[in-house]
Structures are given as structure tokens and as C-alpha cells.
């Protein structure tokens, strides 16, 4: 088995008296989709922000292994290297498209930004790649020069995904990428993410409180509660045979709904 792409142990983080992360560990392997589920306030977004270098934990460490297999301690690599990582090897898809898109820049410019950030200087090539990515996320290429604010919520999320995947990252963080969308739109978006992740062999760390989404996408599942991981394992195993009482409750409440 390959080495993990991202690995963390003993993560602790407090906001005042709230312990948002209480001794959390995780490993994500290349091409693997891992879902983090749990109720509101359980620490899912905080974990994602620590793992992606946006927050520094009070204790514990996060190790990233680059394409050459070299390990790097995330919180010691410095801001410049972290930013480079964020626009090359990694991507982040936000729940709110406004946080992930430039609303004043055309769809094509949004998709092209990461290419330009890593040195692309041929307009025709950038535009051709943007066109191709709009097609892949099922946005009519005739809209390449339109502003994202003229797009529906689902289209904005698909544009955010195109903008993130265009530079072929190895690992993508997604925080509730389908939150706030209609159920039918959600299903289509989940299908799209699943298809692209497996086609491009991208590892995805997905935060969701939608158990059905986790079942559809994730190879592995982590269940969080009060800043702790209460159960983790292969998705089907955890959902079909939950061991922890909280997971049992979570699964039964979905079945009941």
C-alpha cells in the first residue's frame, strides 16, 4: 500500500473554552475519498482548516507527502511554500461559492487563474483549457465570458470545482460542497465530483453532514462528535454496522427521515 498523502496525529485546538479538536488523527491516501461526518459544531470545518494549513493546532502535527514522496511538516513549511502547495498540489472547494470564486471575474478567468498563477502565459492555451473544463463540469461553453453571479447556485459550485481541478491537484478539501443546494442539484453535483475524482485519481477530504452523500462518494468515513473521532472505517462497514452509539443514532436518524 502507498504512503498516505496527508497524515495527522494528536491534533488539539481550542477556541477559548471550546475544545474544537480533541486528539484527532487522520490519514488520506492517494486517490482516496474520505468523508468527515458529524453534527453541527463537532469540529469538521476546524479539522479541515488545520489539515489545509489555515489554522495552527495547539498540539499535534500534520505531514504532507509531495509527489516525490518527500514528507513535509505542514506547520513548519512557511507561508510561501504553503501558498504554492495550495495553488498546485491542493485545492479547496468552499460551501459558499462566493468564498471560492472571484465574482467580478468571468467564468473563463476564474478557471484560468490557477493556470496563470503557476506560470501559464499563453492566452489561447488558457482559454482552451477553460473551455474544456467548463464542458467537463457541464457548463455551456458559450458562457465562458459571463460573470459567476449570473449563474445558478449549482453552476457556481460546478465552476468552483472546474477552477480547482484545472491544475490537476493531488488532494482537494471540500467543506459541504452541496450545502444550500436543491436536492436534485445536489445529486448531480455529487455524481460529478465522484466521476472526476476517480477519473483523475484525486484524493478528496470531504466534510458533510449528509450521510447519503458520504455513502455515495467516500471510500472511508470518519465520524466526529465534540471534537473527537468516535468511529472510522470503510464507509459501508461504518454505515451498515455502526459500533459507536452516536454513529448508530446518526445512521438510524437518516433511515427514519
Amino acid at each position: 500500500m502507498s504512503f498516505p498523502l496527508l497524515e495527522a496525529q494528536g491534533l488539539i485546538l481550542r477556541f477559548g473554552t471550546t475544545t474544537a479538536l480533541d486528539d484527532v488523527g487522520i490519514a488520506v491516501h492517494p486517490g482516496e475519498v474520505v468523508a468527515i461526518v458529524g453534527e453541527s459544531g463537532s469540529g469538521k470545518s476546524t479539522l479541515l482548516r488545520v489539515l489545509s494549513g489555515q489554522l495552527v493546532p495547539a498540539a499535534g502535527q500534520v505531514t504532507y507527502r509531495d509527489a516525490q514522496g518527500q514528507p513535509h511538516l505542514l506547520h513548519e513549511m512557511g507561508e510561501a511554500a504553503l501558498r504554492r502547495l495550495m495553488r498546485t498540489d491542493w485545492g479547496f472547494v468552499h460551501q459558499n461559492a462566493r468564498d471560492g470564486l472571484r465574482m467580478g471575474v468571468s467564468a473563463g478567468g476564474n478557471v484560468g487563474e490557477r493556470l496563470m498563477a503557476i506560470g501559464a502565459r499563453h492566452y489561447g492555451d488558457i482559454r482552451a483549457q477553460a473551455t474544456e473544463w467548463l464542458r467537463r463540469v457541464e457548463i455551456d461553453e458559450a458562457r465562458i465570458d459571463h460573470l459567476p453571479r449570473t449563474f445558478s447556485g449549482g453552476m457556481q459550485q460546478r465552476l468552483q470545482i472546474a477552477r480547482t481541478l484545472v491544475s490537476r491537484p493531488r488532494l482537494v478539501f471540500m467543506d459541504e460542497p452541496t450545502g444550500g443546494l436543491d436536492v436534485s442539484v445536489q445529486a448531480r453535483l455529487l455524481d460529478l465530483i465522484r466521476g472526476l475524482a476517480s477519473e483523475l485519481n484525486i484524493a478528496v477530504l470531504l466534510v458533510t453532514h449528509d450521510i447519503a452523500a458520504a455513502r455515495l462518494l467516500a471510500h472511508r468515513l470518519m465520524v466526529m462528535r465534540h471534537g473527537r473521532v468516535v468511529e472510522q472505517g470503510l464507509t459501508d462497514r461504518v454505515l451498515d454496522d455502526p459500533q459507536h452509539p452516536y454513529t448508530q443514532l446518526l445512521v438510524s436518524s437518516v433511515l427514519a427521515a
Binding site: 473563463g108 478567468g109 487563474e113 488558457i126
Partner: peptide
Amino acid sequence: GLMHVKLYEDIA
């Protein structure tokens, strides 16, 4: 990169 996005937008 952002400055090039601006030039891209101009050309588009």
C-alpha cells in the same frame, strides 16, 4: 497570477 487574470479579462 491575479494581474494576469486582469489581462485575460481584457482580452476576453
